[in-house]
């Protein structure tokens, strides 16, 4: 088997101290391989969001190791970690987090801007991604004028614009109606299938989880069961 793109070893996250101590993660060890689609499933408070934050290098574990491409990242400097996030990850958020004052194109090219890519190159790659997601005609629109589905597509475009290895999606369909949800899911799994992108989905939606190749069921900071094989339509 290839080197796992992400792996954890005895991952522990504790919030607070003494009486208010809360063990969010109680020693998780697992691997995510390149090209996999993984769902982290659990109720709220199960630790799934904490786990995603640790995997996405947005937070540091209390103890344990997160390794990216076989290399532990715990020891890296914050600046290097920021750069790794920018290079390797794409993020799709439930609340979209689009800047309402900026155009769609400006919004989706933000990761490239942060990476220090020149403006013309940014716009070229931004338009490419927008075309891929059938959003090219909305490029000059202000983000605030989009519908929910369009916003999430813009959000996916932003996540894809830096050609990430891993795409993190935090409740990507949480704010969408059923029909729109399906479109967004199609896009995400299409990317996974056609471009071999590694997909990590955090959700409490069983239907969405079912479409992933692997599901990590979380409860009280532990992975209680692990299921393999997609049961959804996109097997």
């Amino acid at each position: 088997m290839s080197t796992p793109v992400l792996e954890t070893e005895n991952l522990v996250k504790v919030y607070g101290k003494g009486a208010t101590r809360f063990d969010a993660l109680k020693g998780l060890t697992f691997e995510i391989h390149e090209g996999e689609s993984v769902a982290i499933v659990g109720k709220s408070g199960s630790g799934k969001s904490t786990l995603m934050h640790l995997l996405a290098l947005l937070d540091e574990p209390t103890s344990g190791v997160v390794a990216l491409g076989g290399e532990p990242v715990t020891a890296l400097k914050p600046k290097k970690v920021s750069q790794l996030r920018n290079d390797t990850f794409g993020f799709v958020f439930q609340q979209f987090f689009l800047n309402p004052n900026q155009t769609v194109l400006e919004n989706i090219t933000l990761p490239l801007k942060i990476a220090g890519v020149g403006k013309s190159e940014r716009n070229r790659r931004g338009m490419e991604v927008l075309e891929q997601l059938d959003m090219a005609d909305k490029a000059k629109n202000k983000a605030t004028n989009l519908s929910g589905g369009q916003k999430q597509r813009a959000c996916i475009a932003r996540a894809l614009v830096n050609n990430p290895t891993v795409l993190f999606a935090d409740e990507p369909t949480g704010n969408l109606d059923t029909a729109t949800s399906e479109i967004v899911e199609d896009i995400l799994f299409g990317l996974h299938r056609d471009q071999g992108i590694t997909l990590v989905v955090v959700t409490h939606d069983e239907d969405l989880a079912a479409k992933c190749q692997r599901r990590l069921m979380m409860q009280d900071g532990e992975i209680v069961t692990e299921e393999h094989g997609a049961t959804g339509v996109h097997a």
Binding site: A56, P78, S82, Q83, R85, N86, L110, I114, A115
Partner: peptide
């Protein structure tokens, strides 16, 4: 968002 997307402090 900017920090999540890799902007350094």
């Amino acid at each position: 968002l900017m920090k999540a997307l890799g902007m350094s402090s």
